[in-house]
């Protein structure tokens, strides 16, 4: 595979990463094709956030190759960040004085394609108080703000780290519609991390399971359904959670 092909979307090839002696990612290989929504699922602490941070150039993989639109995050982090909407609500921290309106105003100069009207409309739709301090926002409101800020500049790539965390059902639907409206054209590449399998089933075209520092399974939702049918023919319906449990159990067995 030509790693530098700009039409390949997101490609990870045998990457390794560790914090100190603790390996976080081992030989991780998968890709998120252009125009598709890929969900990254796995248990807590398996390195999903780390993987997104590597894609943003915030961390550097020890070995292997990483490409986003054919660009290496270590060498072209700026270009990638300019073309990517990154939302990690849990990791969003701004100075305590900063209000929602000031936060958007602060972000604007960094993105040439920033659409102020669109950003305001998003916040209005989400019912976020412009005058509220960011640090005082609830977890759900913070998630909405992070996602709105990530898509307000019309990025080619969306990296979303648990964008639905803490959202009530209505807000969840709003945020999801916001994301769906963004990917409707089919030109955007989305990689998102979520623990809500229902959200994954609703939004994702493809799924990657990260377990014990490795990608243990990747495929489309249809492939997942087929695989589940094969492994459990008597099951009444498809449940992605079952697939996750099955894969985790299989990996555990392999290790033992």
């Amino acid at each position: 595979m030509n790693m530098n092909n700009p039409n390949d979307g997101i490609v990870l090839d045998h990457i390794n990463f560790s914090f100190g002696r603790r390996p976080i990612l081992r030989n991780c290989t998968f890709s998120a094709p252009v125009g598709e929504v890929t969900a990254l699922i796995g248990r807590n602490g398996e390195g999903k956030t780390t993987l997104l941070r590597i894609l943003m150039g915030l961390l550097t993989a020890e070995s292997g190759s990483v490409r986003v639109a054919g660009l290496d995050p270590n060498k072209s982090a700026l270009e990638i960040r300019r073309r990517t909407g990154y939302a990690a609500p849990d990791r969003l921290e701004v100075p305590p004085w900063m209000r929602v309106a000031e936060y958007l105003q602060f972000l604007e100069p960094f993105y040439p394609n920033w659409n102020r009207a669109f950003a305001l409309e998003l916040l209005h739709t989400m019912r976020i108080d412009f005058a509220a301090r960011v640090c005082d926002l609830s977890k759900g409101s913070k998630s909405k703000l992070a996602v709105a800020a990530a898509i307000a500049h019309g990025p080619e790539f969306l990296l979303l780290d648990e964008p639905f965390g803490g959202l009530d059902p209505v807000a969840r639907r709003n945020v999801m519609e916001m994301i769906i409206s963004q990917i409707a054209g089919g030109s955007k590449t989305v990689l998102f991390v979520s623990h809500s399998l229902a959200d994954v089933e609703r939004l994702a075209d493809r799924v990657a399971i990260l377990d014990r520092a490795s990608i243990t399974w990747t495929g489309t939702l249809d492939e997942a359904r087929i695989q589940m049918k094969e492994s459990n023919p008597i099951a009444a319906g498809f449940d992605l959670g079952d697939l996750l449990v099955t894969k985790v159990a299989a990996e555990k067995e392999k290790v033992s």
Partner: peptide
Amino acid sequence: ANDSAGRRIETLCSLPVR
């Protein structure tokens, strides 16, 4: 210290700025 506090520096570094 302001940027060392919490994850502010990370939030800042995730922006397209050198």
